[in-house]
Every structure is written in structure tokens, then in C-alpha cells.
Write a protein that binds this DNA or RNA. Structure first.
Lengths: 257, 257
DNA sequence: CCGCGCCATTGACATGCATCAAGCCACCCC
DNA sequence: GGGGTGGCTTGATGCATGTCAATGGCGCGG
């Protein structure tokens, strides 16, 4: 069982981006995640021209809010973003975490208004991709159109994986799956697959996985006792990847576009 | 809380379609659901030319299977289709029910292989829309491209609603939400919003909503005792729509924010 | 018509997780 | 430094839902 790992392009860590908004798609470290391979350099340049950079977000700051009119999708360049919606009775439902190289905001297309809110879990840099311009460009660049269809389709299949997780799996399995998902997404960005810092709180994790904070905490404790994880607050170290996989019941059906 | 209601175009009831494959998009009763409004008649005709009809499915027959190479999306014209994926340990997860006027199969785009299987819950007719042709047409018809982006985006937001439902709501709330979803989708097709026949089994309902058959059955019994529903096997009659809404929308608490 | 298999319902019981409650720790501000 | 605040952990208890089991209805094929 996998957990969402959307796709896009990173450009360095937060610190660097904060001071250099002149990053271009062409030299972005993350462009293998973000862009269709097939684009030639002039096409990349044209895409580059519509992308707006230099919006560093502080922790807690909103990228967009549920209901506001939709005009762009966003690529995370550094940091981490959480997407969430508020239910009728005022509770929050976290719908996804987005790391560098991943794209969010596509939920807003259907109604021309964002269907969820997005806020920074830590200082983050994002690229804003105006959707109307993207649409026009897609008409001229079939590969780009296809790429976007694929990105949206991926979001669908990932949501469906989460649905399965919520519907069928125990607390332990859910947490294991999330840890593996984050691990895999780290690996994709050439970071450590076994050691990382969680950008989100226990509350957010529980909310995302349909569990209470207490349960999340207890599961972490249990996994630590089993020598599968080493947990120190938000610092996670995976000691036994196989064991973790076993718990998650993972079918290793990984992204391989 | 809502439950998925995807979008497309129906053309009459099953019986009729089975004998007349000559239905065209232009005269399809469901085309207001399926097509972008903005297409003119020559454009509809071009779309019509790529759509393949006349594939009546018998109950239990597969429309496509998980893993097979992706080549088309499908519009339900009559009947009902369930989509599901099989987890590593062999269990099934129902990911959606599709009624006439709704489109399925978009999950297959990202990997060029279907991410789930789809089978008919009853005798059904579907339109097959080859994706490559659709892509080419989209390049020439921006409205069509936009429409498809919207369809996919809708699928995403609906999946997210289901995620919220599974993550936060009780068995009663889930069932109520599903009944309301089916009711609304019926209404959209000008059918009764208060009386209908469920095409799926209790098992499928439970599977979809993350519940056991027994719980589903018990909830139906309870709702019947409350005079909210009248349940006779698969025949459902909504007696108290407000009451059902109240249950689905989770009781509002006075401790607002 | 009978018997078989599948589906649905209902009851009794078990359990995983939520809830409630308390305490710890890190951080921040006065 | 003191005390507040928010996030995390841990324990005790309860409840919603899962599990197991028995029964009845219905359709289908022999």
C-alpha cells in the first residue's frame, strides 16, 4: 500500500531559494520530476516564462484557501505544504502533504475555485503556474498536455490508495505506509530514505490517517519498541525497512512513469 | 458531506441501447452531463466520430482490469459499474460506483495502465472514448481540453470527499451520505430522488464505505426504524430527506470555533 | 419441486481505537 | 527565572464496529 507522492520540480533548499528567485525551469534541480521529458529547450523556456517564482511562504502561511477563485497550480520547490479541507461541522481533514518536486492545487480546476486550503508546514518556496497560460501552452505542446493529464491521473490513483488505506488498514499499517511514502519521496529527491525530519505535527498525521494523536503516538512508541523505527520527536530513523514494509503490507507498485 | 458523482452522458435506458448502437453524442439524452456546453455541432460530430458504442456488458462482466494497458476512458450510458482495486493481500477495495452520465477510467492515464478494475453491477451500456484520439481532439478544441481537465479535477475532489468520509464519519453518517449521493445523481438524470433500486450488494456498499456487511445491514435497519428510510432488500425509499441530511451532515455543535 | 449457494439480517461477543485524564518537555515571553 | 502554552506521551476506561455464528429469503439448476 502506497501513499500519495505527487510530482514536480525542486530547486534547492529553502534557504537558497529565498534569496534567489531567478531559478528557471531549465536549471531547476527538480525538473526531471516536474517537466515532461520530451520538451526541448525552447519549449522549456516558454513554460519557464509563465511560471512565477519568488513566493517564499512562512510556516503557517496559506498558499491558497478553500473557496477562493482558482487561477494557478503550484509546484513545491522547497519546504512542505499540507492541503486540507474543512468539514461542515468545522473539523479539519488533511488531504495531502506535498514535498519538493510535487504539484498541488489541481482540485480547483473543476469548479474554478479551490476545493481545499493549502498552508506551509515550514518555510517553503513554490512556483506558481497560472492555469490559463498552462492551458494555452498545452494546446500548442501536446507533450505538456499529456503530462498534465498524467499528473492529475496520478493524484487520482494516489487518493484511491489513501481511500484503501483508510478503509481497510489498522493504525499501525497506516503509519507504516506513511513513513514508507515519505521515505520513497525523499529517495526520489536523492535524500536519505531512512532518516528524515517530519515537517508535520502528530495532529496532522493523525488527521490525515484518520487517527487520533494518542493513537499516532502509541504506534510510534510500539514501532520503536520493535526496533523498526527510532523516533525522537519529529526525527525519524528507519531501522528495519523490511519490517516496516511487512507491517504496511506494501505492494511495491512504485511510480515509474 | 458528499460522495462522488462523476460526470458524463446517458442515452436512454439499457433496453433501448442494447438494440440501438447508433446513438450519437448529438442526440444522446445525457450529453448535457457528458459534453462541454461550448461545443458547436460540427465539433460534437468530430467527437462523435471517435466514440465507440455498442458494448453492452452483462452483469459481472469486466469493462477493464487492473494492470491492462490503458487506451480509453468510458462513459456509462445505462446500468451501473463498480470500480475496484485488489490489495496485495488479495482483498478488494471498491473505489467508486458509476451511473449513467458518468465517466470512468481516468486513473489509467498516469501509468498507461488501468489502476483499477471495472465491472458491471447489472447489464450496462458504455461509450468507449479512445484516449489518444481524445488527446488529439483536445489540442484542436480547447473547450474539450478544459472539459477533461475539469472532469479529472472533479474526480479528485470527489475522492477527497470520500477520504474525509472514511476518516471522520460514523457508519450511519457514511451510509446516509451514500444514499444522498445516489439520490442526487438520480435527480440529475431526472429520475426519482427518493426512490430507487441499489445496483450493488451490501458487500460492495460496506467495502466502499469501509464497513462490514453486518454493520451496513444494521444501519439500514436502524434508519428504517427511525422512519428515515424504507428498505426492502435493494429497493430504497427515502422517507425523510431532511433527517437523512441531518445524519449525513454531522450534528452541528454549539461550540463554534 | 427440491436443494444448493448467495445474500441479507440479527444476536452475542471481542477488540481496536477514541476518549478522558494526567504529566512531561521544549519553547517563548514577561 | 518563572510561568504559560502547545505538542507529545502514557495510562485507564468505554464504545462503535468488527468478528463469529445462526437463520431466513430468494434465485437457479437439476
Amino acid at each position: 500500500m502506497n501513499i500519495p507522492a505527487k510530482s514536480v520540480g525542486e530547486g534547492g533548499d529553502a534557504r537558497k531559494c529565498t534569496h534567489d528567485f531567478r531559478v528557471s525551469c531549465g536549471n531547476c534541480r527538480l525538473n526531471t520530476l516536474c517537466l515532461p521529458i520530451a520538451l526541448d529547450s525552447t519549449e522549456v523556456e516558454r513554460l519557464d516564462n509563465i511560471v512565477q517564482r519568488g513566493r517564499p511562504l512562512q510556516k503557517g502561511e496559506h498558499l491558497y484557501q478553500e473557496g477562493v477563485s482558482f487561477s494557478a497550480v503550484f509546484a513545491v520547490r522547497s519546504g512542505a505544504i499540507k492541503a486540507y479541507r474543512v468539514t461542515d461541522d468545522g473539523r479539519e481533514q488533511v488531504t495531502g502533504f506535498y514535498f519538493p518536486g510535487e504539484i498541488l492545487g489541481m482540485d480547483g480546476i473543476s469548479k474554478n475555485a479551490h476545493a481545499c486550503s493549502a498552508r506551509a508546514l515550514e518555510t517553503s518556496a513554490v512556483c506558481e503556474i497560472p492555469f490559463s497560460a498552462l492551458q494555452e501552452l498545452s494546446v500548442q505542446m501536446p507533450d505538456l498536455q499529456r503530462h498534465f493529464f498524467q499528473l492529475m491521473s496520478r493524484e487520482i490513483t494516489e487518493d484511491q490508495q489513501l481511500i484503501t488505506l483508510l478503509s481497510k488498514n489498522t493504525a499501525e499499517e497506516r503509519i507504516a505506509a506513511l513513513m514508507l511514502s515519505i521515505s520513497a519521496r525523499n529517495a526520489r529527491r536523492k535524500l536519505s530514505a531512512t532518516q528524515f525530519r517530519l515537517p508535520m505535527s502528530r495532529i496532522d498525521i493523525g488527521n490525515y490517517l484518520g487517527l487520533t494523536v494518542e493513537t499516532v503516538s502509541r504506534v510510534f512508541s510500539r514501532l520503536q519498541k520493535l526496533d523498526i523505527l527510532e523516533v525522537s520527536n519529529k526525527e525519524i530513523k528507519i531501522l528495519d525497512l523490511d519490517g516496516l514494509n511487512e507491517i504496511a503490507n506494501v505492494h511495491v507498485r512504485d511510480d515509474e512513469d
